[in-house]
Design a protein around this nucleic acid. Sequence first.
DNA 1: ATCGTTGTCTACAACGTTGTAAAGGCGTAG
DNA 2: CTACGCCTTTACAACGTTGTAGACAACGAT
Lengths: 344, 344
Amino acid sequence: MPATLKDVAERAGVSIKTVSNVVNGYAFITDATRERVQRAIAETGYRPNLGARNLRKGRTGFIVLAVPELDNPYFAELTGLVITAAHRRQWTVLVEQTQGSREREQAVITSMGPQRIDAAILSPLAMEPDDLLSADPATPLVLLGERDIPGPADHVAIDNVAAARTVVEHLIGIGRRRIAVIGDQPGKNGGTAALRTAGHRQALDAAGIPYDPALVVPVENYQRADGAEAMAHLLQLPEPPDAVFCCNDLLAIGAMRAGAERGVSIPTQVAIAGFDDIAEGSYSLPSLTTIAPDKAAIAEAAVDLADRRVDPIRGGRGEKGSEPEDVRAPFALKVRESTAGAVR
Amino acid sequence: MPATLKDVAERAGVSIKTVSNVVNGYAFITDATRERVQRAIAETGYRPNLGARNLRKGRTGFIVLAVPELDNPYFAELTGLVITAAHRRQWTVLVEQTQGSREREQAVITSMGPQRIDAAILSPLAMEPDDLLSADPATPLVLLGERDIPGPADHVAIDNVAAARTVVEHLIGIGRRRIAVIGDQPGKNGGTAALRTAGHRQALDAAGIPYDPALVVPVENYQRADGAEAMAHLLQLPEPPDAVFCCNDLLAIGAMRAGAERGVSIPTQVAIAGFDDIAEGSYSLPSLTTIAPDKAAIAEAAVDLADRRVDPIRGGRGEKGSEPEDVRAPFALKVRESTAGAVR
DNA sequence: ATCGTTGTCTACAACGTTGTAAAGGCGTAG
DNA sequence: CTACGCCTTTACAACGTTGTAGACAACGAT
């Protein structure tokens, strides 16, 4: 049975509230009392019951982090970072897996989870813009991904269009001209896919390379298998591409495998680039050129925003009712073997 | 402001306790009352405050799952499964990252986290057997990994020795004779490394293949980089191996990369096998032969054990004071390209 | 001496929930 | 018609914590 304030109070010969005051750093306590209480705390091994404290305070101390799934290394890494960042601020993270289901994403933004939460951080996949209107207005929401969706939610993301443009410019830079993109999601407007494919197109346009719709390959999901399938399709085209930009690293890994299985040399015949910089990509054969979002910065910013919305003590920005914020995290292009060397 | 029992009670014109009774499925309630209450619940959108409930019940509803880090795909996948399994039983999982630090593992088994928890599931890395003696006896502990450590903790694991033996037997079966193992951890007795290297040795002995200590390579950690380093070492040996069993898939991925960088053909010159069956291994080039532990079964068993210890209603086994249990989860050998084909 | 101030401590209620015990209604047996 | 028992509902206290408001002592100023 863990010690309570009552136990400590009895041992120190003071009231419960005095112990509470010591614990909370209340100022007006004599050194003698404080010391006595602190000794009693040490002796009993007292640690506050956060459940009770939060009940009293009307808070829960919980942030939900909802990601599609932990199987995905990008989200796994991000989750680890969010947990760490949250810990630093005394928050506890509840990890929720949406499986990319719209229903489960809605459950998060309407705070329908079993636990009461103070804020939610969501990495949306299936959500439609309208869903945000039904969001629980009492629970601050931070969306990971760009602010294509209007509504009362903060956003944290890298500049996906610019990042995609950067990769494709790199592909152009090494002399490629037929540059495909894997990862279009025709159904979903304003999603990540739309932004990254837009970046692809911008880079082509800027370089005066004609845009060939046949080289824009849609996928069901962003898994390795989808990348492999899409790549297989590209390779049997009458005029196959000499480079492929994949909207995430998993697609790229799948694409590289499909290429290898068909005897296509990467990067000599087809260069491949990804997006996310998962660890897998630095050890793949060949290692994968990719966009590395600053995941730590994203995690930090997301937790920071949630924190500020919940506890709007600090000045001005981030307060309860104030305008949604947009945080742009940095990114970097990592050139590796999968795009090494010039044109074939 | 979320609705409380009080709000529902007022609306339904009954007492708070009656609403509570309806919520908890108490039997003796007239259909009329129940219906009225349920309507009020629906209208107010009431959902129980688990914090308050658990405070009252002396429970928290939380299980800590402590893994080294979510960067590691094996633990990420496992974490996802544990969260799902726990959800099914109305538990909430708090994910803790120990970073393989003994201190942080101790913090878990002594329940020193900020949140009060009902049980802990720990995947130990740095823990020493003695540490278990100082474990908080009030908090059921489930260790992921074999029962090499005595003490009041349940264990869930596959038979690591048998699994390792199985892989190595497979390597022998395809004609390899100089079979190295990467992943020894000389300092740590009784850990996973010891079991898997033991399986390696058993297979060699059973096949009458002489045991060459030069082919047993220790590593600092179980990361890709460690595997690469170890493989580089093996390849510059006067008599390099014709097969390598890596104690986990990350080591194997690193080893394959190191091999490829040195122009070694895998599996023709050196066959490589791993352990864990992370998704990465089915798309690597070549794809990775590995031991696939039944992760879902492990997650399920771990949560089930924790559940039974906390709530020992069911008969006999798993009760509060009863003997620690050992659950053996199934595993399977997955033969893939990295060990395809017979001897060189 | 009296008053107000300041500093230190505490009693009480409340957060939302459930276990306990008992109250009320109603039917049935005596 | 009373007494008993059963079914249904309720009041109260408690889980561990903190905000509010007030008690009390010591102190200086009037």
